[in-house]
């Protein structure tokens, strides 16, 4: 019984993390039709920026609770800096190319960022665990969890609700949906597609970075942490259906629960259980769970 509870709680925590890293990816894909491989690097950048800023804050003796703000600010900064460079500086030049070529472009960005991170932060691991321990812990039965781990749950819920609200109930969101469905028509109707792309990419980048910066206090931040994140995020959004918000949520939940169950019951398969699920979902629903089948008219 206890183990089942642990599976569920771990699963929820892990799912939240997955949703935060997946939702930005699916948002960018939905609007821009770009499967952004550099998403993992943005996550890593967030982690580095977050630990640097939070580390600076704490080492200067400022009130420790402010380190949470530092993590948040770090993620926003990463989005604000990376997005103009990547989207305006590079992606803009390749819009309209083949989807695969776009993947390769972002793959190149990933390669560049991986080294850029090493150049900026060096190759030694960075630990800034303070924010993690600050809040104490809570227990469920005889299981104890740090309260900090709820931060990601909170962020994922807020991100999910926020994005759903924006997409469905605001003017900007409706414009976004219009672009998703038909960019040419949207453009002729006077929608500033350029701006929409830029804002979407910025939002997606910030979410990735936020995932990274919030995770930073729980891990040792070192080169390569973004590499696994990319495939995991891919798995999440592909399972849910590329470009679907609800899909990302469901995908995150499925992957999170499966992995948590695997960790507790069959640790040998932990690593690839996620990909087995991904393959199975694609076999049963070739375009993911929430994809709308579209018939071609001839």
């Amino acid at each position: 019984m206890n183990q089942l509870l642990a599976v569920i709680i771990d699963g929820i925590l892990y799912s939240s993390w997955l949703f935060v890293i997946g939702v930005g990816l699916t948002l960018i894909y939905g609007v821009m039709r770009i499967l952004n491989v550099a998403h993992g690097s943005l996550y890593a950048l967030g982690a580095y920026a977050g630990s640097s800023l939070a580390g600076y804050w704490i080492s200067h003796g400022y009130p420790p609770l402010g380190s949470y703000a530092a993590l948040l600010v770090a993620a926003i900064l990463v989005g604000l800096v990376a997005s103009p460079i990547i989207e305006r500086g590079l992606l803009r030049l390749v819009y309209g190319k083949d989807e695969v070529v776009l993947v390769l472009v972002t793959y190149s960005v990933f390669l560049i960022l991986e080294d850029l991170i090493k150049l900026m932060w060096g190759v030694d691991p960075i630990f800034v665990p303070e924010p993690y321990g600050l809040l104490g812990s809570f227990s469920v039965g005889d299981l104890s969890y740090p309260i900090y781990s709820l931060a990601l749950v909170l962020v994922s819920v807020l991100a999910g609700i926020g994005l759903t609200y924006i997409l469905n109930y605001t003017r900007q969101g409706k414009i976004l949906v219009a672009v998703i469905h038909d960019r040419e028509t949207a453009a002729t109707l006077g929608v500033n597609v350029r701006l929409v792309y830029f804002l979407t990419f910025t939002a997606g980048a910030m979410l990735a970075a936020l995932g990274g910066s919030l995770t930073a206090p729980t891990i040792s931040v070192q080169p390569g942490i973004g590499v696994e994140v990319i495939v995991l995020a891919f798995a999440v959004v592909v399972i849910g259906g590329l470009g679907s918000l609800g899909g990302a949520a469901l995908g995150a939940l499925i992957v999170g629960m499966v992995r948590s169950a695997a960790v507790h019951y069959v640790p040998q398969v932990e690593l690839f259980s996620i990909y087995v699920v991904m393959a199975l979902v694609l076999i049963i629903r070739p375009k993911g769970l929430f994809a709308v089948p579209e018939a071609r008219r001839i």
């Binding site: 472009v105 793959y107 190149s108 960005v109 990933f110 390669l111 560049i112 991986e114 850029l116 150049l119």
Partner: peptide
């Protein structure tokens, strides 16, 4: 430390 960067730039 920059070989990946070199490859990425070449590709771009």
């Amino acid at each position: 430390n920059t070989w990946q960067m070199t490859l990425g730039i070449t590709m771009l």
